[in-house]
Design a protein around this nucleic acid. Sequence first.
RNA 1: GCCGAAGUGGUGAAAUUGGUAGACACGCCAGCUUGAGGGGCUGGUGGCGCAAGCCGUGUGGGUUCGAGUCCCACCUUCGGCACCA
Length: 913
Amino acid sequence: MDERYSPEKVETDAQEYWDRHRSFKAVEDPKREKYYCLSMFPYPSGKLHMGHVRNYTIGDVLTRFMRMQGRNVLQPMGWDAFGLPAENAAMANGVPPAKWTYDNIAYMKRQLQSLGFAIDWEREFATCQPEYYKWNQWLFLRMLEKGIAYKKTGVVNWDPVDQTVLANEQVIDGRGWRTGALIEKREIPMYYLRITQYAEELLADLDRLPEWPERVRTMQANWIGKSVGVRFAFRVNGVARSALGSPPSPLEGEGMGMGGDDPSPLALSRKGRGGVGESLQDGLLWVFTTRADTIMGVTFCAVAAEHPLATHAAKSNPKLAAFIEECKRGSVMEADLATIEKKGMPTGIYVTHPLTGEPIPVWVGNYVLMAYGEGAVMAVPAHDERDFHFAKQYRLPIKQVIGVSLGGGRGGNVAFTTDAWQEWYASKDGVCVNSGKYDGLGYAAAVDAIAADLKAKGLGDKQVIFRLRDWGISRQRYWGCPIPIIHCPHCGDVPVPDKDLPVALPEDCVPDGTGNPLIKRADFVNCVCPKCGGKARRETDTMDTFVDSSWYYARYCSPDSGKAMVDERVKYWMPVDQYIGGIEHAILHLLYSRFWSKVMRDLRLVAYDEPFTRLLTQGMVLNEIFFRKPESGRITYYNPADVEVKLDDKGQRIGAILKSDGRPVESGGIGTMSKSKNNGVDPQALIDQYGADTARLFIMFAAPPEDTLEWSDEGVAGANRFLRRLWKLAAEHVGAGIPAKTDLSQLPSPLRDLRRLVHQTLSKVTDDIGRRRTFNTAIAAVMELMNALARLDDGSGPARAVRHEAFELIALMLAPIVPHISHALWFALGHKEAAIDARWPAVDNAALKQENLEIVVQVNGKLRGRVSVPVQAPEDKVRELALADENVARHVAGKAVRKVIVVPGKLVNIVVA
RNA sequence: GCCGAAGUGGUGAAAUUGGUAGACACGCCAGCUUGAGGGGCUGGUGGCGCAAGCCGUGUGGGUUCGAGUCCCACCUUCGGCACCA
């Protein structure tokens, strides 16, 4: 064994061994329990970043650990290879997205391999390969047949200069990123997937995912956004149905006939979202409310700018038309809407209150969303904070209809004033007042009574609605999976027959920013109608890349299947036992994958309901931010590698300078590693300098996996120091020869203590990795053991045998985390079989036995002494020994002992007066 | 604004079930080692105090023999987002 630890050699050797023996090939074996460990696949952006390294190291540790536990493990890897960056790169460099993508994949694959991940590379694929995306198309056609996929118009960002559709991220302050032109909103036909049909199940099944982080489940539940309330209508005064120009809808009447008990999400999702018209059938203004108990307090209604009633009113009111235009111009991003000033304008139209018959004015409000509910709300300013402020601003009446008695709870109504908003105004705990026959009813009773009365009048009923909207998958982009539709002038939109799949994407296009290049590809666009044989035009839109990532985990089970999307091997491997990825995917990717799984299940392609049994969301990787901001001009960020930090003599930071010019830079705190803040660390540089094991060790040691991880060059050096020390100690031990097998059950005291520590450490590491997933504490425990081992200065036979066992267990305990050095140490310790095929060691319970325990003694809760007591000592004896301790006796002397609390094996607390 | 998570030495953190606060590591200090390369080894390192000891886990209360951990109120930071009717 070399005296010196040289990671390049150690790591190359280990990786060559694993390659040669195809150690990571996963083979289905019904006799063995499987373990499918999956990390979210990367977008091939060019090179790995630290977030990838962290993600894949966590997955690899669990994979290798479970493998040592005897499970038949699968850890695959692939590439989320379609997407916008490839088109941007093409525009910048003139390289086709296909070439750019495949080059990046080749480079990043080498990087992943150099980190020594236990990946079955034989299952690798990229989503841009026709063998994969063929099945996107195939499933899309099945969805079309089942009515899950459908076509309707949607709004997109239109750049009038480049004549192209832009993604949200390509719109900066309302202008195109390349042209600077003001972006217009355009309505174009698009394909949608009816995820809302699964809303109820997607919500309910969150309860079947107990091993997902609570906060992810909460985020998904909020995103699905189930609301139980009442949908009802106001008659629009003096407006006939024909005047509104809304065509009779085939869905008309469906809402009323559905009954409140079992509302179908499918029907609901159609209603109110299908576009203009439906909300005004028969001259009715439909609204949805969760506070029907406040209906007697309605003093106005507010509709969205896009609402047909607003459109109608604007025809004869230029000022209103201008206001509506202003509202429509604003951002569609809901986060932006949260901060805009609330504005409104009266339409001049009145509606009739369904219960009181009073006339109610209708306003247009910029805070009403067309996409949620009916695009119209009843406004109860006394009991809704937004309505309250709106009413104050425009001097609209405010009528209290809910009373609350605080304090005693009997009768005494707390005073209501319109001076300022009070928290309790929105409370559901009060009872109705000023509400005629509903007076005195609580929330639930009032809602029931009011819903029943509305139903009797044929003007409404209870209703469940979801915030979740159908998934629009059409993208007016080149580098994606073609949507398999043919547009025929005679037959309309015709699905591509299964036998003609895949619709292959030409790979030699170079986008130039002026729209989808597919439109100009005659050989792609021109085709023959499968129905009538006439000339037809192929759809040029491609699919959202979230489609690609919605089922890739299932494809890994049978990546070579040419006949089917997935084959019977999926039954063995799925569902994924452990999924690992960034918290940024908590909603969309995970929700779409869950939806896609349920669709595949309903098509009897798979048997599972949920694709990911256990989820681990790893924290972000942070680093310091340094910058200079000149008097005039732009802020410049400096990479922490180019900055030297100045410390005072206590190690407290006093400043930082740029290494190149020695002049000070300012600290911007710490933040996520990003290009814009120039605070990234290149994993490749780290691997080149210290090796993969050091990178893996540092990343797993610095923080628990779910927490953020702060980068530290000193910490990396420390991790490397530990490995060098381990290597050196092991080399010294092995250099003296492999000790003969020795009976370790009878050892002198210091050796027995050391051996107990060895097995205590094994016990802790097993629990930390297997159950707690706190890799940082597992590593700390091994470090502690190594420190104890280094202190043992004893060259005797028994000592060498104890030391040998300790090194063996250290090599195995560290094998999931730093597999290369463990591989080398294991062979050096005299084993013929490689560490990769070794089993996780078992704790020797006999080694854990001890005769005496150290017990802490407190007096009035303050630590006053420690005593050694026999393990089997009865409580009286422990108490006696505790009181006999010199320091304890001193603190107890002269005081009456009131109580003595004995916690077996832990402590004694003596309570004195 | 709403929702969620978290506040512990100079720093990253540990304390798993209410039971020794600060394991492990970084940094710093002292000493040794002419093998300066990102050296190696030993010891020290929460604050105050000569000491006994006292104080100490964001702040203020509370429960308990005992609280970083449980309860109430507040402050701060981070993350997510919805004006969701």
